[in-house]
Amino acid sequence: SDIKVHVGDITVELHNVSEEFARLVEEALRLGLNEEQAKEWAHKALH
């Protein structure tokens, strides 16, 4: 599904992702990663 993740003043739109993936992206953003890094990190975490 499509999910918007908000962290501080950052909003990341995720398309066709699981809630778990979105949660991992949100966690990575909170750790200070940028959007691209957060998506990559979440992807690796799920595989």
Results as ranks from 00 to 15, higher is better:
Arg30Gly: 10
Val5Asn: 06
Ala45Tyr: 14
Leu24Cys: 02
His6Phe: 04
Ile10Leu: 11
Thr11Ala: 07
Val25Asp: 00
Lys44Phe: 09
Glu26Pro: 00
Lys44Leu: 10
Val25Pro: 00
His6Gly: 08
Asn34Cys: 01
Ala28His: 02
Lys4Ala: 13
Ser1Arg: 04
Val7Glu: 05
Glu26Arg: 09
His47Ser: 13
Glu20Ser: 10
Gln37Ser: 09
Glu13Pro: 02
Leu46Gly: 08
Glu13Lys: 02
Val17Asp: 04
Asn34Gln: 07
Asn34Gly: 11
Ala42Tyr: 01
Ala22Trp: 07
Val25Gln: 01
Lys39Val: 15
Glu27Phe: 13
Asp2Met: 11
His6Asn: 15
Glu26Cys: 06
Glu35Phe: 11
Leu24Thr: 02
Leu46Cys: 03
Ala38Trp: 01
Leu14Asn: 04
Glu36Ser: 12
Glu13Trp: 07
Asp9Tyr: 05
Val5Ile: 15
Val25Leu: 07
Glu36Val: 13
Asp9Val: 09
Ala38Thr: 00
Gly8Ser: 06
His15Phe: 08
Ile10Met: 10
Ile10Phe: 08
Asn34Met: 08
Leu14Ile: 05
Lys39Ser: 05
Ala38Gly: 02
Leu24Gly: 02
His15Cys: 03
Ala28Trp: 02
Leu33His: 09
Leu31Arg: 13
Ala28Ser: 03
Leu31Gly: 10
Ile10Asp: 05
Trp41Asn: 03
Glu19Gly: 09
Ser18Lys: 07
Thr11Lys: 07
Val17Glu: 05
Gly32Glu: 02
Leu33Pro: 00
Asn16Pro: 03
His15Gln: 11
Ala22Glu: 04
Glu27Met: 15
Lys4Thr: 15
Val5His: 04
Ala28Glu: 00
Glu26Tyr: 12
Ile3Thr: 05
Ser1Pro: 06
Val7Ser: 06
Glu13Asn: 12
Ile10Ala: 06
Trp41Leu: 08
Glu27Ile: 14
Lys39Arg: 10
Lys44His: 07
Arg30Gln: 12
Leu31Trp: 11
Glu27Leu: 14
Leu29Pro: 00
Lys4Cys: 07
Arg30Ala: 08
Val7Ala: 07
Leu33Gly: 01
Glu19Ser: 11
Glu20Gly: 09
Ala45Thr: 14
Ser18Ile: 03
Ala42Ser: 02
Lys39His: 03
Gly8Trp: 04
Ser18Thr: 14
Phe21Asp: 00
Val12Ala: 06
Leu46Trp: 12
Glu40Ala: 10
His43Lys: 12
Lys44Glu: 13
Asn34Lys: 09
Ser18Gly: 07
Glu40Tyr: 09
Ala38Phe: 01
Glu20Met: 11
Val5Trp: 02
Glu19Asn: 11
Thr11Ser: 09
Leu31Tyr: 12
Phe21Ser: 00
Val7Lys: 03
Glu19Asp: 08
Lys4Asn: 15
Arg23Met: 13
Glu40Thr: 08
Ile10Arg: 02
Ala38His: 00
Arg30Cys: 06
Thr11Asp: 06
Asp2Tyr: 13
Asp9Leu: 13
Trp41Phe: 14
Leu14Gly: 04
Gly32Ile: 00
Ala28Gly: 12
Ala22Met: 05
Asp2Trp: 08
Glu35Ala: 15
Val17Pro: 05
Lys4Phe: 09
Glu20Gln: 14
His43Pro: 00
Lys44Gln: 15
Glu36Pro: 09
Asn34Ile: 04
Val12Arg: 00
Asn16Gly: 14
Leu46Thr: 10
Glu26Gln: 09
Ala45Leu: 13
Val7Trp: 15
Lys39Gly: 02
Ser1His: 13
Asn34Ala: 09
Lys44Tyr: 12
Asn34Val: 03
Glu40Lys: 11
Gly8Asn: 07
Val5Lys: 00
Glu19Tyr: 14
Glu19Val: 15
Ala42Arg: 00
His6Tyr: 03
Ile10Gly: 03
Arg23Ser: 11
Gln37Met: 13
Glu36His: 11
Val17Asn: 05
Ser18Glu: 06
Ala42Phe: 01
Ser1Lys: 10
Arg30Thr: 12
Glu35Tyr: 07
Val5Gly: 04
Lys4Met: 14
Leu31Glu: 10
Asp2Asn: 13
Ala22Val: 08
His47Gly: 14
Gly8Leu: 06
Glu20Trp: 09
Arg30Ser: 09
Lys39Phe: 11
Leu33Cys: 07
Leu29Glu: 01
Lys4Arg: 06
Ala42Asp: 00
Leu31His: 13
Lys39Tyr: 11
Val12Phe: 04
Val5Cys: 02
Arg23Val: 09
Glu27Lys: 13
Leu46Gln: 11
Glu36Gly: 11
His43Ala: 11
Ala22Arg: 06
Arg30Asp: 04
Asn16Lys: 05
Arg30His: 15
Val7Ile: 11
Thr11Asn: 01
Ser1Cys: 10
Arg23Lys: 15
Asn34Glu: 09
Gly8Phe: 04
Leu31Val: 09
Ala28Leu: 03
Glu19Ile: 15
Glu40His: 10
Glu19Gln: 14
Ser18Asn: 08
Asp2Leu: 09
Ala38Arg: 00
Ile10Trp: 06
Asn34Asp: 14
Glu20Phe: 10
Arg23Trp: 10
Trp41Asp: 02
Gly32Met: 02
Glu13Ala: 08
Ala28Asp: 00
